[in-house]
Amino acid sequence: MTMNKKAILLVEDNPDDEELTLRGLRTNNIANDIVVAHDGVEALEYLFGTGPHANRNLAEQPALILLDLKLPRLDGLEVLRRIRADDHTRLLPVVILTSSKEERDLVESYQLGANSYVRKPVDFNQFCEAAKQLGLYWLVLNEVVS
């Protein structure tokens, strides 16, 4: 098994959570590039190569998208909807990584085609464990359409 070397797109508006997630991924030897988008609009600009990412090579899409739900400008569910609506991005693995455990968030995420739903634990050790499991599963075990 080889590790997927493509980038990870982390969509996260909270700088603290961003740092925690990055550390969680790094301490578990996940060496992929991590691109951070701070809101839904930034995430879509990166994925669709618009705005500041106009010159990006769109053949290189991230191996995994970690998507928060509560985001400024465009929320996570809307981002997910746009990802699934576009032919270039519809097959990308999207993992919802959020604080919420509300039933309707779960249901809506899965209905819109989320591949996985992970709730961020308060306990940092559990958080790191979650990041490790996510990396192991989505970057190593899981086979994606290339």
Binding site: N14, D16, D17, E19, L20, R23, L69, K70, T98, S99, S100, K101, E102, K120, P121, V122, D123, F124, N125, F127
Partner: peptide
């Protein structure tokens, strides 16, 4: 309660995570 569920836990993660760091 939706807002509580989303927003109130985030600072706690910061507290716990950064203490651990």
């Amino acid at each position: 309660s939706y807002s509580v569920s989303h927003d109130l836990r985030a600072p706690l993660r910061t507290l716990d995570g950064f203490s651990q760091m």
